[in-house]
Nucleic acid binder design. Sequence first.
DNA 1: CTGAACATATTTGTAAGACAAATGACAAGC
DNA 2: GCTTGTCATTTGTCTTACAAATATGTTCAG
Lengths: 236, 236
Amino acid sequence: MPPKAASPRNLHVQVIEELGGLIVGGVLRPGDPLPGEARLAEQLAVSRTVLREALKVLAAKGLIETRQKTGMRVRDARFWNHLDANVLAWRCAAMPTEDFVDKLVEMRAIIEPAAVAAAARRRDPAQLAAIGEALEAMEEAQTLDDWAEADLRFHEAVLTATNNELLSSLFGVIETALGTFFVMSARTAKNFRYSLPHHRAVYEAIRRRRPNEATAAMQAMIADSRANMRKGKKSS
Amino acid sequence: MPPKAASPRNLHVQVIEELGGLIVGGVLRPGDPLPGEARLAEQLAVSRTVLREALKVLAAKGLIETRQKTGMRVRDARFWNHLDANVLAWRCAAMPTEDFVDKLVEMRAIIEPAAVAAAARRRDPAQLAAIGEALEAMEEAQTLDDWAEADLRFHEAVLTATNNELLSSLFGVIETALGTFFVMSARTAKNFRYSLPHHRAVYEAIRRRRPNEATAAMQAMIADSRANMRKGKKSS
DNA sequence: CTGAACATATTTGTAAGACAAATGACAAGC
DNA sequence: GCTTGTCATTTGTCTTACAAATATGTTCAG
């Protein structure tokens, strides 16, 4: 029987999503021995080749560990690459626990004020202009979608202006993860422009190259955001 | 001809190191088209199977992008997972530029003071004890190796005590990267205990649950470390 | 009965060959 | 010049085959 070949749909990515979700989601617990490659491949209806490509990626993310004869085992959570975008996304998908959101918010509260200070110090004219354009778009936004798009652009422009790709990378990951929780409650949606003054203040501070003022403005914005989140939670 | 099988040495990891190093090191520049899988496999003296396992991992790190017919291309640096431990290590290996070290130091200066504050707030008795033990080992250290080992343990204990795996993960990555630059110049080695008072101050603040004091102590420690680094550089 | 050396079976690591589908490039026709 | 269709190249997938490692069980000596 000649080997049949399936249509190329990047199957290994699907396998990564499937297994990664199960592991980070807690269905497959640390220490659990996974079935052998042969069985697992059959179970997932893919070839061993594809499965192994996925396993290597999961191993690179620190989720699994493999030895000959023993097979694969889920690694302890302290070995996971928690800052990996996928790992974070899987946690967001599976863990709406308040605890995890708190950790994300804590990270944001540490990073963002420092990031705007860095931007205020090192931004160049073009980067400032990009931030300004995003701010204008926010001011003119009528619909919620317009505003969300402009807000995202604002933050992206700011993090680019830090000229520190480590900082902006971290920032982006955290921001993306937090974004998945913005189900945008009806209450928040109603007065979605509440943070506009804060954004303006941040922009002004960056324009005038005042790191301390930028930090203060961002901290105020986070405090407000927290207050709003609390109100939203209480109302739900 | 029956297919021969080579000895299992996790070849794909070597391929990852090889190619990853070339890309992050700048030998293979963004936009460069890589040779096809067949040619590349031959070039590296591995099978296409192994090469593909490596390529999937590199793609997961954002270093390359592959499409049918076009082949693989090195992605622009802004898509890289800069916080990935390997990516960071490759950069450290290839880029002793002052610029990059500055970025790492900036990250550290942002994260560490915040981390010790979190530890002061949330550490439990066992975690405090772990920090204390590491501190004692530092005080009693006679050789440079002993001290380095205890110092590492101290920082690890502190980051564990934050009870925020995102924070500790980031902290660990940055710390590891910076560690590769500690060639430990003769000057630094001579009086390697200079930071002991700062460590003690951090420990005390965490013990007494004083976040602000912990932050201040850590900032002082970083300032001192910076001053020492500058002196070391000037002398070299 | 205990323990150590040995044999065996299972599992991952590697290689190689074949086919499917996508797609850039080129040629033909309008 | 522009569109359309063919073709060749490249990645995606599956299968088979073997090598090496190693957990497990077995056998034999004491």
